[in-house]
Amino acid sequence: MTDATSAQRARALIARLDLTNLAEDCTEADVAALCVRAETAAGPVAAICIWPDFVGFARRELSARIKVATVVNFPLGGSDVEATLIETRRAIADGADEIDLVIAYDRLADDPGFVEAQVRTIRAICGHARLKAILETGKLYDEATIRSACRAALAGGADFLKTSTGKVEVNATPGSAKILLEEIAKAGGTVGFKPAGGIKTFEDADGYMRLAETICGLDYPAPERFRLGASGVLADLLAIAQGAERPGGGASY
Protein backbone atom coordinates (compact mmCIF):
# COMPACT_ATOMS: atom_id res chain seq x y z
CA MET A 1 0.00 0.00 0.00
CA THR A 2 1.07 3.56 -0.62
CA ASP A 3 1.41 5.87 2.37
CA ALA A 4 -1.78 7.67 1.29
CA THR A 5 -3.72 4.42 1.15
CA SER A 6 -2.38 3.31 4.52
CA ALA A 7 -3.34 6.65 6.07
CA GLN A 8 -6.84 6.41 4.63
CA ARG A 9 -7.31 2.90 5.95
CA ALA A 10 -5.89 3.86 9.36
CA ARG A 11 -8.49 6.63 9.63
CA ALA A 12 -11.19 4.16 8.62
CA LEU A 13 -10.02 1.74 11.30
CA ILE A 14 -10.09 4.47 13.97
CA ALA A 15 -13.72 5.13 13.05
CA ARG A 16 -14.40 1.43 13.67
CA LEU A 17 -12.56 1.12 16.97
CA ASP A 18 -14.20 0.20 20.28
CA LEU A 19 -11.61 1.87 22.52
CA THR A 20 -11.51 -0.41 25.54
CA ASN A 21 -10.63 -0.38 29.20
CA LEU A 22 -11.72 -3.53 31.02
CA ALA A 23 -8.80 -3.59 33.43
CA GLU A 24 -9.68 -4.92 36.88
CA ASP A 25 -8.36 -1.73 38.50
CA CYS A 26 -10.09 0.69 36.12
CA THR A 27 -11.27 3.89 37.83
CA GLU A 28 -13.57 6.74 36.90
CA ALA A 29 -10.46 8.82 36.18
CA ASP A 30 -9.30 6.14 33.74
CA VAL A 31 -12.67 6.24 32.00
CA ALA A 32 -12.49 10.04 31.81
CA ALA A 33 -9.09 9.73 30.13
CA LEU A 34 -10.52 7.11 27.74
CA CYS A 35 -13.31 9.53 26.79
CA VAL A 36 -10.70 12.19 25.96
CA ARG A 37 -8.67 9.71 23.86
CA ALA A 38 -11.83 8.71 21.98
CA GLU A 39 -11.98 12.13 20.29
CA THR A 40 -8.82 11.69 18.25
CA ALA A 41 -7.04 14.08 15.92
CA ALA A 42 -8.08 11.76 13.07
CA GLY A 43 -11.73 11.71 14.09
CA PRO A 44 -13.76 9.98 16.80
CA VAL A 45 -13.67 6.27 17.51
CA ALA A 46 -16.91 4.32 17.11
CA ALA A 47 -17.36 3.51 20.80
CA ILE A 48 -15.71 3.05 24.13
CA CYS A 49 -16.13 -0.31 25.88
CA ILE A 50 -16.08 -0.17 29.67
CA TRP A 51 -17.34 -1.85 32.85
CA PRO A 52 -21.08 -1.38 33.59
CA ASP A 53 -20.41 0.73 36.70
CA PHE A 54 -19.02 3.53 34.51
CA VAL A 55 -21.72 3.68 31.82
CA GLY A 56 -23.66 6.63 33.26
CA PHE A 57 -20.49 8.65 33.81
CA ALA A 58 -19.16 7.91 30.31
CA ARG A 59 -22.44 8.80 28.64
CA ARG A 60 -22.35 12.20 30.32
CA GLU A 61 -18.71 12.74 29.32
CA LEU A 62 -18.94 11.71 25.67
CA SER A 63 -20.51 13.39 22.69
CA ALA A 64 -23.52 11.56 21.28
CA ARG A 65 -21.56 10.54 18.17
CA ILE A 66 -19.47 8.09 20.21
CA LYS A 67 -21.30 5.01 21.48
CA VAL A 68 -21.00 3.61 24.98
CA ALA A 69 -20.56 -0.16 24.99
CA THR A 70 -20.43 -2.28 28.12
CA VAL A 71 -20.05 -5.93 29.05
CA VAL A 72 -22.43 -8.32 30.80
CA ASN A 73 -21.99 -11.88 32.03
CA PHE A 74 -18.31 -10.97 31.78
CA PRO A 75 -15.76 -12.48 31.59
CA LEU A 76 -16.68 -16.07 32.51
CA GLY A 77 -19.90 -16.48 30.52
CA GLY A 78 -22.00 -18.20 33.16
CA SER A 79 -25.52 -19.58 32.89
CA ASP A 80 -27.34 -17.22 35.29
CA VAL A 81 -29.64 -15.52 32.81
CA GLU A 82 -31.59 -13.64 35.49
CA ALA A 83 -28.41 -11.99 36.82
CA THR A 84 -27.46 -11.03 33.26
CA LEU A 85 -30.90 -9.54 32.70
CA ILE A 86 -30.43 -7.36 35.77
CA GLU A 87 -27.00 -6.22 34.56
CA THR A 88 -28.33 -5.47 31.09
CA ARG A 89 -31.39 -3.52 32.26
CA ARG A 90 -29.23 -1.36 34.50
CA ALA A 91 -26.68 -0.69 31.75
CA ILE A 92 -29.36 0.37 29.28
CA ALA A 93 -31.04 2.58 31.89
CA ASP A 94 -27.66 4.22 32.50
CA GLY A 95 -27.29 5.01 28.80
CA ALA A 96 -25.47 2.07 27.18
CA ASP A 97 -25.80 1.98 23.41
CA GLU A 98 -24.26 -1.47 22.99
CA ILE A 99 -24.21 -4.60 25.16
CA ASP A 100 -21.35 -7.10 24.79
CA LEU A 101 -22.68 -10.38 26.22
CA VAL A 102 -20.43 -13.35 27.00
CA ILE A 103 -22.41 -16.43 26.01
CA ALA A 104 -22.43 -19.53 28.21
CA TYR A 105 -19.76 -21.09 26.02
CA ASP A 106 -19.24 -24.03 28.36
CA ARG A 107 -22.80 -25.16 27.50
CA LEU A 108 -22.27 -25.32 23.75
CA ALA A 109 -21.13 -28.91 23.42
CA ASP A 110 -24.09 -30.38 25.31
CA ASP A 111 -26.79 -27.74 24.96
CA PRO A 112 -26.41 -25.18 22.16
CA GLY A 113 -30.11 -24.46 22.56
CA PHE A 114 -29.36 -22.89 25.94
CA VAL A 115 -27.02 -20.38 24.29
CA GLU A 116 -29.59 -19.55 21.62
CA ALA A 117 -32.23 -18.95 24.31
CA GLN A 118 -29.78 -16.94 26.43
CA VAL A 119 -29.00 -14.60 23.53
CA ARG A 120 -32.66 -14.30 22.59
CA THR A 121 -33.66 -13.44 26.16
CA ILE A 122 -31.04 -10.69 26.50
CA ARG A 123 -31.74 -9.35 23.01
CA ALA A 124 -35.42 -9.00 23.87
CA ILE A 125 -34.70 -6.36 26.52
CA CYS A 126 -32.01 -4.46 24.62
CA GLY A 127 -34.45 -2.28 22.70
CA HIS A 128 -32.44 0.26 20.70
CA ALA A 129 -29.13 -1.08 22.03
CA ARG A 130 -27.10 -3.43 19.87
CA LEU A 131 -26.23 -6.83 21.28
CA LYS A 132 -22.77 -8.24 20.58
CA ALA A 133 -22.43 -11.94 21.44
CA ILE A 134 -18.93 -12.74 22.73
CA LEU A 135 -18.21 -16.34 21.76
CA GLU A 136 -14.81 -16.71 23.51
CA THR A 137 -13.45 -18.62 20.53
CA GLY A 138 -10.13 -19.32 22.24
CA LYS A 139 -11.98 -21.59 24.67
CA LEU A 140 -13.93 -23.47 21.98
CA TYR A 141 -10.86 -25.20 20.52
CA ASP A 142 -12.27 -26.66 17.29
CA GLU A 143 -13.97 -25.32 14.20
CA ALA A 144 -17.20 -27.28 14.66
CA THR A 145 -17.77 -25.82 18.13
CA ILE A 146 -17.01 -22.29 16.97
CA ARG A 147 -19.52 -22.70 14.14
CA SER A 148 -22.07 -24.04 16.63
CA ALA A 149 -21.53 -20.93 18.78
CA CYS A 150 -22.02 -18.67 15.76
CA ARG A 151 -25.23 -20.38 14.75
CA ALA A 152 -26.67 -20.33 18.26
CA ALA A 153 -25.93 -16.62 18.65
CA LEU A 154 -27.27 -15.79 15.21
CA ALA A 155 -30.44 -17.80 15.83
CA GLY A 156 -30.88 -15.91 19.10
CA GLY A 157 -30.84 -12.58 17.27
CA ALA A 158 -27.37 -11.22 18.05
CA ASP A 159 -26.54 -8.01 16.18
CA PHE A 160 -22.79 -8.78 16.23
CA LEU A 161 -20.54 -11.79 16.66
CA LYS A 162 -17.47 -10.96 18.74
CA THR A 163 -14.54 -13.31 19.08
CA SER A 164 -13.28 -12.82 22.61
CA THR A 165 -13.26 -11.18 26.01
CA GLY A 166 -9.55 -10.36 25.81
CA LYS A 167 -9.22 -12.13 29.18
CA VAL A 168 -8.05 -15.58 28.06
CA GLU A 169 -4.81 -16.91 26.61
CA VAL A 170 -6.05 -17.07 23.00
CA ASN A 171 -8.22 -14.19 21.81
CA ALA A 172 -8.93 -13.02 18.26
CA THR A 173 -7.09 -14.92 15.54
CA PRO A 174 -7.43 -14.78 11.75
CA GLY A 175 -8.60 -18.41 11.83
CA SER A 176 -11.45 -17.80 14.24
CA ALA A 177 -12.34 -14.55 12.49
CA LYS A 178 -12.68 -16.38 9.19
CA ILE A 179 -15.17 -18.83 10.71
CA LEU A 180 -17.30 -16.07 12.23
CA LEU A 181 -17.34 -14.10 8.99
CA GLU A 182 -18.24 -17.18 6.96
CA GLU A 183 -21.22 -17.86 9.23
CA ILE A 184 -22.27 -14.20 9.04
CA ALA A 185 -22.08 -14.36 5.23
CA LYS A 186 -24.19 -17.55 5.18
CA ALA A 187 -26.80 -15.78 7.32
CA GLY A 188 -27.09 -12.91 4.85
CA GLY A 189 -24.15 -10.68 5.74
CA THR A 190 -26.07 -8.14 7.82
CA VAL A 191 -24.84 -9.10 11.31
CA GLY A 192 -21.76 -7.29 12.55
CA PHE A 193 -18.32 -8.70 13.40
CA LYS A 194 -15.90 -7.68 16.15
CA PRO A 195 -12.47 -9.23 16.68
CA ALA A 196 -11.16 -8.43 20.17
CA GLY A 197 -7.92 -8.99 22.05
CA GLY A 198 -4.43 -9.31 20.60
CA ILE A 199 -4.85 -6.46 18.10
CA LYS A 200 -1.65 -4.47 18.51
CA THR A 201 -0.73 -2.93 15.16
CA PHE A 202 -2.18 -1.34 12.04
CA GLU A 203 -1.34 -4.55 10.20
CA ASP A 204 -3.35 -6.62 12.73
CA ALA A 205 -6.36 -4.34 12.48
CA ASP A 206 -6.24 -3.91 8.71
CA GLY A 207 -5.88 -7.65 8.26
CA TYR A 208 -9.22 -8.21 9.96
CA MET A 209 -10.93 -5.55 7.89
CA ARG A 210 -9.50 -7.02 4.69
CA LEU A 211 -10.72 -10.47 5.74
CA ALA A 212 -14.20 -9.02 6.27
CA GLU A 213 -14.07 -7.38 2.84
CA THR A 214 -13.01 -10.64 1.21
CA ILE A 215 -15.66 -12.83 2.83
CA CYS A 216 -18.63 -10.47 3.21
CA GLY A 217 -17.98 -7.89 0.47
CA LEU A 218 -16.17 -4.58 0.12
CA ASP A 219 -19.13 -2.62 1.46
CA TYR A 220 -19.59 -4.86 4.52
CA PRO A 221 -17.17 -3.36 7.09
CA ALA A 222 -19.00 -0.08 7.70
CA PRO A 223 -18.81 1.10 11.34
CA GLU A 224 -22.29 -0.26 12.07
CA ARG A 225 -21.13 -3.75 11.06
CA PHE A 226 -17.40 -3.93 11.78
CA ARG A 227 -15.62 -3.05 15.02
CA LEU A 228 -12.24 -3.67 16.57
CA GLY A 229 -12.03 -4.40 20.30
CA ALA A 230 -8.71 -2.91 21.37
CA SER A 231 -7.03 -0.04 23.13
CA GLY A 232 -3.28 -0.14 22.55
CA VAL A 233 -3.65 -0.14 18.75
CA LEU A 234 -4.91 3.45 18.67
CA ALA A 235 -1.44 5.01 18.89
CA ASP A 236 -0.23 3.01 15.88
CA LEU A 237 -3.33 3.85 13.85
CA LEU A 238 -2.95 7.55 14.65
CA ALA A 239 0.72 7.53 13.67
CA ILE A 240 -0.08 6.06 10.27
CA ALA A 241 -3.13 8.29 9.77
CA GLN A 242 -0.97 11.36 10.44
CA GLY A 243 2.21 10.20 8.72
CA ALA A 244 4.13 10.23 12.00
CA GLU A 245 6.68 7.87 13.50
CA ARG A 246 5.06 4.67 14.74
CA PRO A 247 5.32 3.68 18.42
CA GLY A 248 6.94 0.40 19.41
CA GLY A 249 3.96 -1.84 20.21
CA GLY A 250 1.42 -1.46 22.99
CA ALA A 251 -1.19 -3.20 25.06
CA SER A 252 -3.54 -5.49 23.18
CA TYR A 253 -6.74 -4.89 25.19
Rank of each mutant, 00 (worst) to 15 (best):
A4F: 11
F226I: 09
T70N: 10
Y141H: 15
L19F: 12
T165M: 03
Y208W: 12
T145V: 14
T163R: 02
K194M: 13
V31H: 06
G198Q: 06
K139Y: 15
Y208M: 08
D53V: 05
E224N: 12
E143L: 08
L34T: 03
V170N: 08
K194A: 03
A152R: 07
A129E: 03
A23M: 11
D100F: 09
Y220A: 01
L161Q: 04
I86H: 15
T121R: 09
R225G: 02
L34S: 14
V68I: 08
A244R: 10
L131W: 08
A96I: 00
V191A: 09
G127D: 08
A222F: 11
P223W: 05
V36A: 06
D236I: 02
G232L: 07
A96Q: 14
A42T: 07
T165H: 09
G243F: 01
A41N: 15
D219L: 09
K200V: 12
G243S: 11
G113M: 12
L181Y: 01
T137A: 13
I146Q: 10
A32V: 13
K194R: 11
A104L: 01
K200I: 04
L135C: 03
A93V: 07
C216F: 12
G166C: 10
I184Y: 04
L211G: 06
P52H: 08
A244D: 07
D53K: 03
D110Y: 04
G43W: 02
R37S: 15
L34V: 15
A149R: 00
R151T: 04
K139V: 10
A15P: 06
S6D: 15
T165C: 08
L34C: 07
E87Y: 00
I99Q: 01
E98V: 00
N21F: 05
L17E: 06
Q118T: 05
A239Q: 00
W51I: 01
E169H: 14
T173S: 07
V72S: 05
T137D: 03
A205I: 07
I86Q: 13
F202G: 08
N21H: 09
R90P: 02
G217F: 05
G56I: 03
E182M: 14
F226C: 03
F193M: 03
A158T: 03
A46F: 13
V68G: 06
R16Q: 13
Y253E: 15
H128R: 15
C49P: 10
I50M: 13
N171Y: 09
D3W: 10
R11G: 11
D110G: 14
Y208Q: 14
T70S: 14
A124L: 02
